[in-house]
Amino acid sequence: MSRIPQLFSKRSEKVIPFLTAGYPNKLDTVNMVLSAEKSGAAMVELGMPFSDPLADGPIIQRASQVAIENGVNIKWILEIVIDIRMSSEIPLVLMGYINPIIKYGLEKFLQDCKKVGIDGLIIPDLPPEEAEKFVKLARTNHISPILLVAPNTSSERINLISKLAVDLIYCVAILGITGSENNMGNLKEYLARVGENSICPFIVGFGIKNREDVVKINKLAHGAVVGSAIINAIRGSGSSVDTVKNYIERLVK
């Protein structure tokens, strides 16, 4: 059963780090997730690398490339989730593009996600127009399909998307790709509109970097996703596990 409805049943400040699975190496991923949890992450989003990530900026593109070179694939990611689940009950979401999932087999993928204890899935190149089968299979396997909305999504469409998603939706903060500059400009109006039209809780990501952003986002939404900023910090550091720990501690307080 997805841990997501339970997590979002009460309003509290939530930090949701994004980590590319297998970056910077395969050895550290499990410990990075566990240390994120200890540092106060409410949920962790694990990125499944793809060679052509259309919605991602240079930082996550590079991390994905390194992960692919490290031999990361869906099978390996599901195996490390088993390791994580031996000592953690933190809500876990996988984010990835549809092509590797199609190659793995959509139905098998959702069944295997259920088996290893994944709670939700984010597929940025699968808008509602193409998501029917995915949403149905996710429901059958008790996994939350976390559909996306953007600042230019109409109010009617936000409503429709939230009804499809049921448990949680993901608001792209800006018109742009991950890691872009985000001046937190028109967010208030946009997220108020999401709040009025969505039947479910919503988290916000893209361009969120620091404690100040996290506080602001959590006032307007139900959680803040921080991705490129953490990946960028890992890139220049000696110990990725310590970097994740320190970075998230600073985001949380």
Binding site: A55, P124, E130, L147, V149, T153, I161, G176
Partner: peptide, 11 residues
């Protein structure tokens, strides 16, 4: 075929 694009491009 289809429309496999991020939500931002749908409009």
């Amino acid at each position: 075929g289809g429309k496999y694009v991020p939500e931002t491009l749908i409009p």
